[in-house]
Every structure is written in C-alpha cells, then in structure tokens.
Amino acid sequence: MNGDNLIVLATLVAYKLVLVGVGVWASRRNRTEGDFFLASQGLGAWVAGLSYAASTSSAWVLLGFSGFVYANGLSALWMVPGIWGGYVAVWLFFGRRLRAETAERGHVTPTDFLTAGLADRSRALIGILASVFILFCFIFYIAAQFGAAAVAFETQFGLGVTESVLIGAAIVLLYSLLGGFWAVSVTDMLQGALMAVVAVALPVTALIAAGGFGGIADALSATAPEGYLDITGGHAGFVLIGFVLGVWGVGVNAMGQPQLISRLMAVKDEGARMRGFTIAIVWAVAVFTGMTILGLAGRAIVGGAADGEALFYTLADQLLPPVLAGLVIAAVLSAVMSTVDSILLSASAAVSHDMRLSRRFAGKE
C-alpha cells in the first residue's frame, strides 16, 4: 500500500471510530423499546432533516445520479422534480399526522400507524404482510448498498468484494446494535453533512478543471452525442412522456419506505418538523445540483468512455490530494451506511415488534 492510500485509510479509520463512539454514547439513552426504535420522539430539526436526507439519498445519488447525468446529459434532470416532490409529500402532507398520532398513541413503527384502529385479525394480517415485504425488499436494498461500498474499497485499496462487504457490515452492525435509532439518526446526520460538503467541493473542483461553464459547454458541444444537451434527450411524444414519468417515479418510493417514515414519527414537535423539512430540502437541492455539475464536468474532462458509476472516484483521484480523496471515499461509505443502518433497524423492528404484535393479535401468544 502506497503513502497516499495510507493517508486515505487513516482518514477512514478516524471517521469510523467517530461513528462507533456515537453508538456507545447513544446506547446509554436506550431504556425502552420506544427509545431503541424511535428515540422516544426526541429528534430535533437538524438530526431529523439531515438523517432523512442522507437515508433517502444514498450512494445512488453520489455514484448513480452523477453517472446518469454523465451518460444521458440534460434529460437526466427530469428525475430531480420527482425526488424533491417526494420530500415535499412526506414532510408536508404526511408528516403532521404521522408525528401527531405517534405522540398520541405511542406508535413504534410505521406498521403500528397503518394498523391503528383496525380489528385484531386485520392488524395481525397487515402486520405480517408488511413485515414480510419489508424483509424481502430490504435484502436486495442492503445488497446494493454493500455493493457500492465494495466498489469504493476495491477502487482505492484493491480489496476483494467479500472483504469489503464484511468490513462495512461490521461497522454498521456495531453502532446500530449499540445505540439503536438514536445512534442511527445522529450518525446519519454526520454522514449527511459530510455528503453535502463533498457533493459541493468535488463538483466545484471539477467545474474549475473543466474551464467553467463555458468550457463544459464548448467541450460537450464538440464531443457529446446527439440529444445530450437537449432536455428531452431526443425523445418525443409518448416515449418522452414514458421517460419522464418513469424517472419521476423514483421519488414516489420515499412515501412508503419505513426507515424514512420513522424520521417523521420521531421528530419531537411541529416546529422541529417544519425546520427539518427546510434543512432536508436545502440539502437535496445542493447535493443534486452538485452531482449534476459533476456529471457534466466529468463528461467534459474524461470523455464518454469512462464508467459512469466510477466517475465520482475517477475525478476524486485526478483532482484531489490524498486527504481530501479519503474524505470523498468516506462520503460514499457514509451514503451507504446512512441507508444500511436505517433499513437494518427497520427490518429488526419488523421482526421483533411488528411480527410479535401480529402474533398476539392473531391469538398465538
């Protein structure tokens, strides 16, 4: 391992020790099931807003969306209104009732909210179905996130996929199991802040390297394929409508993901909910704008032959010194962990809380 890689590794180790320290701190705050799975509805605006943003916009934003822009050009921006619309729907339309009913009825999970007021048999059936769906879907979601972490370790350190996945899993499990929802939310807040810093700093660096907006426009006009700089992507009619609706649909999933809904259930009051929304949407605007610039600047710098999903790493290696490159890798791992820790906690809540209550309502306990 060369000196640059040692600097990157030291940066990562220091950062991960901070996350484990948060887990140890949070473990002292857990006394009840409500503490462990919902932080006893004690999240403030910054923790709720940034942890929500980091959880909903994981590695796919830093790697996938920047690569999507790199590959498709301006037509990729049709995805953004759907994403931001998901933030608005969850925080402003669903958030008030989620928070209020959780405080009034003592809900612990989104399934509690869905089944409140139903007959026992219906509660049991819905609870079991919801738990099964959560566990089934999250298997693939977790696998995708750990795959992104493996790419980071492989690219930077030459580690194998198995070793990379095991390292990431060990860290996430340690602080998640120690501190529960408190640890997950606070570490996600820190990880969301790091993601935002990198999602601004790296695109600005790439923009300067590409010669500013004028340099990007000149390079893409000369080398990009037809339709790259067209907001329609060269599509028309029903094909364009289908494309737009398809990419808008990415934002719809935010309205049904339990790890995101839990943030709204856990926010401590209405003032914190509204401030949390402001923080989350500002974060989303900054990060998606940065990844758009990165995708276009990357196309101007490296051309069209590069792997879009590796563009983030490629530009970091080319444009940044080792310490900052370490922060970039840490940001990607943060994006992974901010999603994985949340969905692991939601999956454990589905098994230990929802299924247990469902069995009780079904008369099996």
Results as ranks from 00 to 15, higher is better:
112 D>S: 02
319 L>K: 02
64 G>S: 07
249 G>T: 00
351 V>C: 03
209 A>W: 05
6 L>R: 15
84 W>Y: 13
103 A>I: 03
258 P>I: 07
215 G>D: 07
4 D>H: 12
116 A>W: 13
111 T>Q: 07
324 L>H: 11
159 L>W: 15
313 Y>R: 07
223 T>E: 13
85 G>I: 13
49 G>S: 11
17 L>S: 05
255 M>K: 03
161 V>G: 07
125 L>I: 14
2 N>K: 15
55 S>W: 00
177 L>P: 06
186 V>A: 03
269 D>W: 04
127 G>T: 09
340 V>K: 00
20 V>K: 00
303 G>T: 05
165 V>T: 00
334 S>A: 15
204 V>R: 03
124 A>Y: 04
272 A>M: 04
159 L>Q: 10
90 V>K: 06
121 R>L: 13
95 G>E: 06
273 R>N: 01
163 E>S: 12
298 G>N: 00
297 A>I: 02
228 Y>P: 11
128 I>R: 09
121 R>I: 07
356 R>Q: 06
194 L>V: 12
303 G>D: 09
285 V>R: 02
298 G>V: 01
345 L>I: 04
190 L>R: 02
133 F>E: 07
194 L>H: 09
312 F>L: 01
52 Y>F: 13
272 A>N: 06
124 A>F: 10
131 S>C: 08
4 D>L: 11
190 L>D: 01
63 L>I: 01
132 V>D: 08
144 A>W: 05
324 L>Y: 10
194 L>S: 04
221 S>A: 15
125 L>M: 13
118 L>F: 07
334 S>N: 09
276 G>C: 03
267 V>N: 04
361 F>L: 05
47 V>Q: 05
194 L>G: 08
60 W>E: 03
339 T>S: 15
273 R>G: 01
163 E>L: 12
310 A>D: 10
134 I>T: 13
286 A>G: 10
326 G>K: 10
250 V>I: 15
327 L>E: 05
354 D>Y: 08
329 I>V: 14
274 M>R: 15
239 V>H: 12
364 K>L: 13
170 A>I: 02
333 L>Y: 01
303 G>L: 07
122 S>Q: 13
9 L>K: 01
51 S>M: 02
42 G>F: 00
10 A>V: 13
338 S>N: 08
253 N>M: 14
269 D>Y: 04
84 W>L: 15
36 F>A: 07
16 K>V: 13
20 V>E: 00
144 A>L: 07
322 P>G: 01
29 R>K: 11
226 E>D: 14
56 T>W: 12
305 A>M: 10
241 I>W: 15
236 A>V: 12
84 W>D: 06
207 L>Q: 07
223 T>A: 14
